[in-house]
Design a protein around this nucleic acid. Sequence first.
DNA 1: CGGTTGCTTGAGATCCATCAATAGGAGTGG
DNA 2: CCACTCCTATTGATGGATCTCAAGCAACCG
Lengths: 240, 240
Amino acid sequence: MVLPFIRKLRHGARLTGDDERVLSSLAEPTRSAGPRVDIIAEGRPLPFLPLIIEGWACHYRLLENGKRQIISLFLPGDLCGPFRTLPHFKNHALATLTPMVFAPVSFDAITAAAAASREIEEVLWWDLLVASAMERERIVSLGRRTASERLGHCLCELHCRLRMVGLIDGLSYDLATTQADLGDLLGLSTVHVNRSLRELKRAGLVSLRGRRVTIDDPDGLRHFSLFEEGYLHADGSRSG
Amino acid sequence: MVLPFIRKLRHGARLTGDDERVLSSLAEPTRSAGPRVDIIAEGRPLPFLPLIIEGWACHYRLLENGKRQIISLFLPGDLCGPFRTLPHFKNHALATLTPMVFAPVSFDAITAAAAASREIEEVLWWDLLVASAMERERIVSLGRRTASERLGHCLCELHCRLRMVGLIDGLSYDLATTQADLGDLLGLSTVHVNRSLRELKRAGLVSLRGRRVTIDDPDGLRHFSLFEEGYLHADGSRSG
DNA sequence: CGGTTGCTTGAGATCCATCAATAGGAGTGG
DNA sequence: CCACTCCTATTGATGGATCTCAAGCAACCG
């Protein structure tokens, strides 16, 4: 079985067998965590870099007024932060959204891997630059897209990201978040997430059965949400 | 005269004289640009990394619906992007907000500088991590702060950032943006920026004379805006 | 079964956008 | 020095988007 981490990185570089073996070795040993558990508390330096094998997680921030904002959403194959850190840099809280299996990758190991192979060094940068592009895209969403557009955009992005790690079934995938989580991610109230979802359903763009999302009209949803997937670099555009 | 770039980086590492000379050499030669000019068009790979000597700039994104979102704001001393890029990564548009003097730093030169000195490599990462923290903080603002809180937070951040490069005068500094720019930065309409500003003024938190901002009640403004400056690493916390 | 969690819907309030108009300041040309 | 224009700031009025409060429902789980 190929790790989702490896599957994802193949979109970013042509990895040799050696490269993939080195990268796979970073993914061991693994730990497990339950759902809705803090892996790393807010304000601590990062002791290691979590690499997700299975499950979803997020960086979040709790404001003094009690509101929560999810800063980044992490899926299987994701490194939960930049591959390099410095002393005195504190982290946002990292929490699981679902039960999760992850590898606590040591920064030393990752640095050594990058030093050993130019391709690995590049693909780690590729991953960092894509993660950073997703954050910037969310700034655009939060600032200038309506609630329904934000939600549609998010559903498009998730489909694309899950496709990169082989976790979709055609136009369907399992949405592991609650609507409250989506609200904290998109800067909306739970109630309004629900209404926006209803709007997308009524427009025939998506449908839901339980936690299973199906994008019924991909072009329509992309157009409605102003979604352009280039920033995710899922097309192997390295070769084009 | 010490470059703002150097002044800023001193907050991130103890640089030797040699380090500073190497970093200063990156800042030459320089170019000038007028106000409201695109330095780099959207969707192009980055030909070089602009380093601002004087003036303000921003990354922005124009949506198909005509709305604009400013993604990052850049001040004197700022590198307008991560110090490493990869082929096929396209950029957001980079535009000046004011007349600007900048150095088009070549990625090769910056890579060489990082390879030559561990301190330089670290301080470039420091800069990248701080820039990334500012983007995440804006996600929090856009998602979970009210208009006035966002504005106050922004004014606090600007004061801190300008302080790091010596461009403040006590509690005052020159705000180089129009209210329309602030709106695009904070996800608000121009009109509402104006009203939020009025609210901050009436609360005795800030005052304005022309483009000159004065923070009359720093603690009050910080508290009101839920601003905690740790993410900017302006305190030389590397030593603490 | 009862308790908990998440989803759904309604009603009313609030925040913010939009439209429209005015005013001030800086530059420009006569 | 004045008239003109453009850009920015300011304010009012109105409507729309979203939040909050509240209630009911469904699924799951001890």
